[in-house]
Simulated scan of single mutants.
Amino acid sequence: MQLQAIHHVALICSDYAASRAFYVDLLGLRVVAEHYREARQSWKLDLALPSGGQLELFSFPAPPARPSRPEACGLRHLCFAVENVAAAKAWLESQGVAVEEIRVDEYTEKRFTFFADPDGLPLELYEQPAA
């Protein structure tokens, strides 16, 4: 077996409308498909990532809270590559999103920062200049 890439990452949100607006309207991810699953009282939204992968967004009635910080076991964060972290940070802040200070990866010397989605899931921006 040889893994080729990450196909998708699935997230469960507490407020479907707020999360949909965050990922589609704010972050600009393209909707691939959107379905309401009556039997599960659940929305499923497939979003295209620029790299070809997908983000699946689910809603369920009363999902339990998942610990995020301090460093809980499990998914730590999602990271998106951007060409310029400072410009992305400034744009997010202009949209009312709280963004941490920019740091430098001690091993790669690349700049990065963190912000959060509507449910507090940590999201990272990692600088990857165009080649």
Score class of each variant (00 low, 15 high):
17 A>V: 11
38 E>M: 11
38 E>A: 15
96 G>Q: 01
31 V>F: 11
39 A>M: 00
26 L>T: 09
75 L>W: 09
127 E>M: 06
65 A>Y: 03
8 H>E: 11
23 Y>L: 04
33 A>M: 12
57 L>S: 01
76 R>N: 14
103 R>T: 00
100 E>A: 14
71 E>P: 00
5 A>K: 03
109 E>A: 13
33 A>Y: 03
17 A>S: 13
17 A>W: 02
95 Q>M: 14
13 C>Y: 02
101 E>K: 06
56 E>F: 03
101 E>I: 09
6 I>W: 04
46 D>G: 00
108 T>F: 06
80 F>V: 07
95 Q>D: 12
85 V>E: 01
66 R>I: 15
108 T>K: 07
105 D>L: 04
122 P>I: 10
116 A>C: 12
7 H>D: 11
29 L>A: 02
74 G>H: 07
71 E>G: 14
81 A>D: 06
70 P>Y: 08
63 P>N: 07
115 F>S: 03
85 V>S: 06
99 V>C: 13
68 S>I: 15
131 A>K: 13
95 Q>L: 12
26 L>N: 14
10 A>D: 06
92 L>N: 14
14 S>Y: 05
65 A>F: 07
36 Y>R: 02
95 Q>C: 13
103 R>N: 06
84 N>D: 13
104 V>Y: 09
100 E>I: 05
36 Y>V: 06
48 A>I: 01
60 F>C: 03
78 L>C: 12
17 A>K: 14
79 C>V: 00
73 C>N: 08
71 E>R: 10
20 R>S: 05
115 F>L: 06
96 G>R: 08
30 R>A: 01
15 D>K: 14
51 S>F: 11
5 A>Q: 04
30 R>E: 08
121 L>R: 11
107 Y>T: 11
91 W>D: 03
108 T>A: 02
51 S>C: 02
71 E>I: 10
1 M>P: 09
80 F>H: 07
16 Y>M: 08
56 E>W: 04
67 P>Y: 04
32 V>T: 00
78 L>Y: 09
88 A>G: 10
114 F>W: 01
64 P>T: 10
110 K>L: 06
60 F>R: 08
73 C>V: 10
18 A>V: 01
12 I>P: 07
90 A>C: 12
23 Y>H: 12
125 L>A: 06
82 V>N: 05
60 F>M: 11
25 D>T: 14
118 P>H: 08
31 V>K: 10
99 V>I: 13
95 Q>R: 15
97 V>Y: 10
19 S>L: 09
45 L>K: 03
100 E>N: 13
53 G>A: 03
62 A>M: 03
33 A>Q: 12
40 R>Q: 08
107 Y>I: 11
8 H>L: 08
17 A>D: 14
109 E>P: 02
119 D>L: 08
122 P>F: 05
118 P>A: 05
59 S>N: 14
40 R>S: 00
7 H>A: 00
105 D>E: 05
72 A>F: 00
121 L>C: 12
59 S>K: 11
14 S>T: 15
39 A>E: 06
110 K>W: 02
47 L>A: 06
115 F>W: 07
121 L>N: 13
15 D>P: 07
18 A>T: 03
123 L>K: 10
106 E>L: 12
76 R>M: 14
54 Q>L: 07
84 N>W: 08
7 H>V: 04
117 D>V: 12
80 F>C: 07
70 P>V: 10
85 V>H: 01
37 R>V: 15
51 S>H: 03
125 L>W: 09
92 L>P: 05
36 Y>M: 02
94 S>I: 02
80 F>Q: 09
10 A>I: 08
89 K>H: 15
96 G>T: 01
